[in-house]
Design a protein around this nucleic acid. Structure first.
Lengths: 216, 216
DNA sequence: TTTATATTGATAAAAAAATATCAATACCGG
DNA sequence: CCGGTATTGATATTTTTTTATCAATATAAA
């Protein structure tokens, strides 16, 4: 089936962190950067960084490193972050509001230009400069010819239904913050964020810590 | 050095989603559950789920499946989520407020009982039932004998400094939502959430979608 | 210049994760 | 009861990701 599978996912996940650090180094005026510097910052081995950067197609200078601006451009290009993505947000609760208020997304070329909610108490309110629209107006406000990325921040129980509506409006890409696994047809891609997954990892790390402490 | 490394990270990350779905199935009164059901929900192959569940030590019944309540208990136990974790939150901005307002964390045994900020405009305010304390009061309010998990939601530039302060107060586990990679001594564990990482993956998926569309 | 150090790139190896196969077991419908 | 289908558990295989090795290249200091 047409399920989109991304290989090199771990590498791709590290890219934004490289990019962010590189921007800082660039602002500080560093013309070159080595994998050692990036690796130290991220608590990785330099070899990991070197391998990661390979997939952007960029090539460094042995003995010197990579040209900082060139590397930044290569990562941006690889991620498709040179041209901005238009996006709409659905679910203007506390998480949705936080996402609307986070200016950092512009760095990734993500521009959220619409916000929707089903709650009459929220519709019409302005959050971080955006007026919350009625979710029922989505079909009129979303142009299927150039559909935005949809950022879903609604409660668990509403997520699938909201996704269905969005897809009916022509949306092809969903960034899902709801605690639900969405079913979508071929030709639609979803990225789900499971923050509890991170907490599960932390919990296991804590258990390892404790078991070490007991030993000593 | 003593850097804590977690193996089976992909498996551990999937656990909370299994757990959440299992709770729903349990509430619906399903005494047994098969890997097929979980796999369909999560768009995985059943074999992946089966392998994942193995590490909890639980065993199913061939031809039948797993006992739902037993499986729930096994996952909770594996993650250490049967006894609640005490936590404090630092940085009561929009993201911090969203986290304070998210009731779902109680399901994971995470109980946030303190909130700190450095901004005088925020100190003293009540957010979702918690009074925001001055970050300068952390040493007095955190008991080093039973330190809470710290949830960091401060801006990039402040993150490392805040982490240092927390560690000085005895904190051993940090859940870091700041867009920064923290340096911590041995004996302290950090879990960093990089939401941009998810967006990077989505971006690559979109590029693949587009390249498929171009072909047809 | 020479030497010590740091770096990339190419290749190889090891480790981890995902996937496949199949026998044994249970259920359900006739 | 019997035959078809669904399930787990054990084992093996494949794929992906991480890590190691080393020659070639550059820099800086003696």
């Amino acid at each position: 089936m047409g399920k989109i599978k991304v290989s090199k996912a771990p590498t791709i996940r590290r890219m934004p962190t490289y990019l962010h650090k590189l921007m800082e180094l660039s602002a500080e005026g560093a013309p070159f950067v080595s994998t050692t510097v990036l690796a130290n910052y991220m608590n990785l081995e330099p070899i990991v960084v070197r391998k990661d950067l390979e997939i952007t197609g960029i090539t460094g200078q042995p003995g010197v490193g990579y040209k900082t601006p060139e590397l930044i451009a290569a990562i941006r290009n690889f991620l498709g972050w040179n041209n901005p993505f238009q996006a709409c947000l659905v679910g203007a609760g506390s998480l949705g509001s936080a996402i609307l208020g986070y200016e950092g997304f512009e760095e990734y070329g993500l521009h959220i230009s619409m916000a929707f909610d089903a709650d009459p108490a929220k519709i019409g309110k302005t959050i971080h400069g955006l007026v919350v629209q009625d979710i029922a107006d989505m079909p009129r406000m979303i142009n299927p010819a150039s559909p935005p990325i949809a950022v879903i921040c609604v409660p668990y129980a509403a997520a699938q239904q909201v996704a269905d509506q969005l897809i009916k409006c022509g949306v092809k890409a969903i960034w899902n913050f709801a605690n639900a696994s969405l079913q979508v047809p071929d030709g639609v891609v979803v990225q789900r964020e499971v923050i509890a997954g991170g907490f599960a990892l932390l919990s296991v790390k804590i258990a390892q810590l404790d078991s070490i402490r007991v030993k000593f």
